[in-house]
Design a protein around this nucleic acid. Sequence first.
DNA 1: TACGCGTGGTG
DNA 2: TCACCAAGCGT
Length: 299
Amino acid sequence: MPTPSAPLPDDLAGLHDAVVGWFDDHARDLPWRGTAEVLPEPWPVLVSELMLQQTPVVRVLPVFEAWMERWPTPADLAAEPSSEAVRAWGRLGYPRRALRLHAAAVAITTEHDGRVPDDHAALLSLPGVGEYTAAAVASFAFGQRHAVMDTNVRRVLARVVLGQAYPSTSVTAAERRLAQALLPADDAHRWAAATMELGALVCTARAPRCDVCPVADRCRWLALGRPDHDGPPRRGQAWAGTDRQCRGRLLAVLRDATDPVPKAALDAVWEDGAQRERCLDALLDEGLAQVHSDGKFSL
DNA sequence: TACGCGTGGTG
DNA sequence: TCACCAAGCGT
């Protein structure tokens, strides 16, 4: 195991206690979370993690509740067509995730006896489950010891340990080594949840609340006077006129219709015909939309 | 590795 | 106001 390139904090146990202690007092009561004593069920954890990819908690909450009531097990979801998953996804965004969650439910049902696997590699092989989500499910639902690196954790570590305003654009090997080296020997899953929550509630991207931070007295970034980000500029996401906007418009029409719609209904929501056709073809290809024998379209 | 992928809230 | 940001993944 290589040594982290940045020096570790000199009081790791103190850091752990401060963050986990804060979490015990301030953690939000979210429906996919367990308690300090009892781990949550893995299926709700998996569902929530897919929904939370790039989507804020407050928008996920109502969709999650409805989803779990309708499909309390992976087999329940797998038994329905994927179009139902896309419709139930509502306006969470990135509707491919609904398709992936449905495909994951099918894989769990057919290849894992209907139970969410507890093995990191098996989780990673599920559709829509990448490095972060596999570590998160193994950690939160099964109490395992993994470095869980989402945008919150990466920002907390960048600030507290490295003294930088933001982490690098992509996860580096040094960052993985650092997160691994910081893992406590016991209850690493609580450390994972606590660092994520700290990033979400206190050590936020734009307006960090250092005045109420439990580790302000050991934060390198704060000690340095909160220096600005000095790396390459963080690339924004283009929107107006993009395929993404066009796809969103088309999908909204299909989602809001109870029955298949004529093509004219799709033509009406996007001016540029060539772009519209390209996007519609892509949606059909990806399985987000279907064309029927009468020429009408639906999810 | 860098990019495309939805949607809506906010400083 | 508007650029930025939100529990990433797949290619």
